Computed example of a mutant assay.
Amino acid sequence: MRAFIFPGQGSQAVGMGKALAESSSTAREVFQEVDHALEQNLFKLMCEGPEDELTLTENAQPAIMANAIATLRVMEKEGGKSLEDLCTYVAGHSLGEYTALCAAGAFDLTTTAQLLKLRGQSMQKAVPVGEGGMAALLGADKKKASSLANSAAQGDVCTIANDNDPTQVVISGHMAAIERAIALVKEHEIKRGILLPVSAPFHCSLMQPAAEAMEEALDEANILPPSVPLFANVTADMVSDTDEIRRLLVDQVTGTVRWRESVINLSEAGVEQFVEFGGKVLGGMVKRINKEVETKSLISRDDIDSFLASI
């Protein structure tokens, strides 16, 4: 049994998608549709930069999605099979959840691009730059991270944003609390705390204004039942009902990304192979969660050809 998984923010890089577009009209069509949907030349930014502009949340989110969907579409066309022929479940990390839903036909590509553009803009506007932050806790499990966050809060917001794998948890909240948390890591038997280069504190209660903006947009969006079930970030469980998908996407803006539990639950559901599209970060997390499963990362045309030859 196989799951297709889709990366979150941080997977962007100048040059992303360029080689794939040069070798495939299918990929070029995806990038052109996203550019048209957003009324901007996002693909040129993806290919040429500048990096600081590509890294902006409102650009990075639709860019990462477009790159992953282009990779998937090339694979489907080259393989002559649809997603549901090749996998049993989909999942995505944070914004990757939108990509997963697009891949499974719940959203069309134009809607996905527009929702992610709005999501990025709303998240950026929710908290003034410098007031919020995030930190990766290395050598921390969820229990240690939760204890640290509670100690560091001191009246501010400081909470678990991403439970990524048994060795890495990300916290989010007011910058003062995040800085206190980094200073306290040793007291909580955590190896290291690293301040992340992000412009907003994602997946915490400070993102409530963004959640409200997404609720309004998702109420108007057309959502179809996905062709295969999604394992959702905030529940770490499968969902196919469109009303529940809509609700969970709103909850996800302020809620914890329960990636570690999602992978455990996917494994228990029978998944033995995880295939990541357009990135290679999630595969490493998956292996740290469950060493027994197989992981593949599809980025280049060679990766796609190799995967198709193996199935």
Rank of each mutant, 00 (worst) to 15 (best):
L195Q: 06
K81S: 10
Q121N: 10
A63R: 02
K186D: 12
G8W: 00
K18L: 12
V169W: 06
E220C: 05
V281R: 10
T235I: 03
R180K: 07
I223K: 06
P62M: 08
A177V: 02
S122L: 10
K144Y: 12
H36M: 14
K18R: 12
E78R: 14
I190E: 04
Q168I: 02
E292T: 15
M46K: 02
Q252N: 10
M175I: 12
R28W: 02
G10C: 09
L42H: 03
F6M: 03
K18M: 03
A213P: 04
D108L: 10
E292A: 15
Q252R: 04
N150R: 15
T256V: 09
L109E: 10
D302Y: 11
A68S: 15
S146N: 14
K77E: 13
V74E: 01
E220Q: 14
A145I: 05
I69Y: 02
E53D: 12
E22D: 13
F231P: 00
P50I: 01
H203M: 05
K291R: 15
M75D: 01
A183F: 05
H93V: 11
A66I: 04
G155I: 11
A211Y: 01
A136M: 08
D303T: 14
S205D: 13
G96A: 10
A152E: 05
A70N: 00
R258H: 11
T110G: 14
E84L: 08
D302M: 13
V228R: 00
V90Q: 01
K186G: 12
I299Q: 14
I171K: 01
P197Y: 06
A19Y: 08
S151H: 13
V127D: 08
A213R: 00
A68L: 04
L195T: 03
T254M: 06
F307Q: 10
M214L: 13
E78T: 09
G105E: 08
I245K: 01
D141C: 12
D35C: 06
V14Q: 02
P50G: 01
D237L: 11
G255T: 04
L249V: 09
Q61N: 06
R180Q: 05
G133T: 10
G17A: 03
E22F: 07
C87A: 14
I182F: 01
Q40I: 12
G270W: 08
D35M: 05
M1H: 12
S267N: 13
F31M: 00
K291F: 13
A37G: 07
E97T: 07
A200H: 04
P229M: 06
V34M: 03
S240D: 10
S11D: 05
K296D: 12
T242C: 11
V293Q: 12
